[in-house]
């Protein structure tokens, strides 16, 4: 199975939390300041739905091959 790395840029994030709610694998959770953080990186399949939904260019998804 493919694995992917999600990178969140906090300087661009406006805490709309769309990525947290629309992730089909529930990879994200909201931290105490309201920003999304990645709580389950192993669940990510690299579908890029969070990247496509993010209105503020704050998310990048990089795929990497599983060993």
């Amino acid at each position: 199975m493919k694995k992917a790395n999600v990178a969140i840029n906090k300087d661009l994030c406006k805490k709309c939390t769309i990525c947290v709610h629309f992730c089909p694998r529930k990879v994200f959770r909201i931290d105490q300041d309201g920003y999304p953080i990645i709580s389950h990186p192993e669940k990510c399949t690299g579908c890029r739905l969070c990247f496509l939904h993010c209105p503020d260019f704050a998310l990048e998804v990089e795929e990497e091959l599983d060993d």
């Binding site: 300087d11 661009l12 406006k14 805490k15 769309i18 939904h53 993010c54 209105p55 503020d56």
Partner: peptide, 12 residues
Amino acid sequence: PSIWCPGCGNGT
């Protein structure tokens, strides 16, 4: 970051 409100669809 853009001028748009959090969640606004213009960025998407």
